[in-house]
């Protein structure tokens, strides 16, 4: 077999797919490595097609690679905790601690302090929680961690509601979305439109060294953000959108597609920020109207007719306006506003 070495920089699937047999090993994703950490291994009890299970493995495997497996994870109460560690089995393959729902950030601070104080400062710390544990009940400790700039990477897996308890509204539930506590009935069905609890921007307001958003649809982007975060000490925040088939009422096979659409519609801006300022955005590659995202989810079914036509034009327009605002704010169409 003769293999020609050429300087061609086009690789068929580029960095869109998980792996790529055409690029050098060191440039491949952590997920494409057959000896990857599998920080969250098989046998967990997440629903079929769970975006959070996927996001957690993506993020932690990348962190494991970046830290040479010198990693401790702290977990807030929530789906991820419940489906991974029901006695007598755990799916984790790294040192992992679950304390409470609202205290993951503080526990992680303690872990980092404890490691430093006992001469193991090289061991890195990741805290993780869902949107409830992060944006709502755990916001105080998280803010404290940010303000002290504790050496922790906090990862929020945002599935936009309290899924573990049966899909109740959280501070990150989008407007108009149906949840068990924002039923699709009455004059304004679904969740009220608010200002939204924009965790990444809240994190940026603390001027911590690194804030980034990612989705499970763009592995390379996610992994590179984890790696970048692991190169930095101090507080770092990574907000990962993880679609939830159960809570969103989507087909289990659509999990990645939905995450991709969330980005491509502009509803979920993918960017990174250094010291409080946006430093890079992942531009939209194939722009999509919000409808193509909403239509796939039963939590937005009340916005459409049975035939799939838009029934509530005003609300869809309002959601589109939110997407447009993100596109403008972050320059998601790749245009530089400066």
């Amino acid at each position: 077999m003769s293999t020609e070495r050429t300087p061609v920089r086009f690789y068929q699937v580029g960095s869109f797919a998980v792996g790529n047999r055409l690029v050098e090993l060191e440039r491949r994703s952590a997920q494409s490595d057959p000896t990857r950490a599998n920080s969250l291994t098989s046998g967990h009890r997440a629903c079929a097609g769970c975006g959070e299970a996927l996001g957690a493995r993506y993020a932690l495997d990348a962190a494991m690679r970046a830290s040479d497996h010198q990693l401790v994870a702290v977990n807030a109460t929530g789906c991820l905790e419940v489906f991974s560690t029901p006695y007598p089995e755990t799916s984790w393959r790294l040192p992992w601690l679950h304390s409470l729902f609202g205290n993951a950030a503080a526990v992680a601070t303690g872990v980092a302090a404890g490691l430093r104080a006992t001469g193991r400062g090289h061991v890195r710390v990741v805290a993780q929680g869902g949107d409830g544990g992060t944006a709502d009940i755990g916001l105080g400790p998280l803010s404290g961690m940010f303000e002290r700039n504790d050496d922790v990477l906090y990862i929020c897996y945002d599935n936009e509601a309290y899924m573990n308890t049966g899909v109740q509204r959280s501070g990150t539930t989008p407007g108009a979305a149906r949840t068990a506590t924002t039923e699709a009935v009455g004059e304004h069905p679904g969740n009220r439109f608010g200002q939204g609890k924009d965790l990444p921007r809240l994190a940026m307001a603390h001027e911590i060294p690194y804030v980034a958003t990612a989705t499970v649809a763009d592995l390379f982007d996610l992994e590179s953000k984890v790696e970048r975060a692991m190169e930095i000490s101090g507080s770092r925040y990574l907000h990962i959108l993880v679609p939830c088939p159960l809570g969103w009422g989507s087909v289990s096979s659509d999990t990645i597609r939905l995450a991709r659409l969330a980005h491509q519609t502009g509803l979920f801006p993918v960017f990174e920020a250094r010291d409080g300022d946006v430093s890079a955005v992942t531009p939209i590659r194939h722009p999509e109207p919000v409808e193509s995202y909403l239509r796939l989810q039963k939590r937005f079914a009340h916005l459409f007719t049975r035939e799939g036509e838009v029934a509530d034009r005003a609300t869809v327009a309002r959601i589109q306006a939110q997407a447009s605002r993100n596109i403008t704010r972050y320059g998601l169409l790749g245009r530089d506003d400066d």
Partner: peptide
């Protein structure tokens, strides 16, 4: 909670 974290790593 910080104390819990610290204690869990043997501090």
């Amino acid at each position: 909670s910080v104390t819990i974290g610290a204690s869990a790593v043997g501090a």
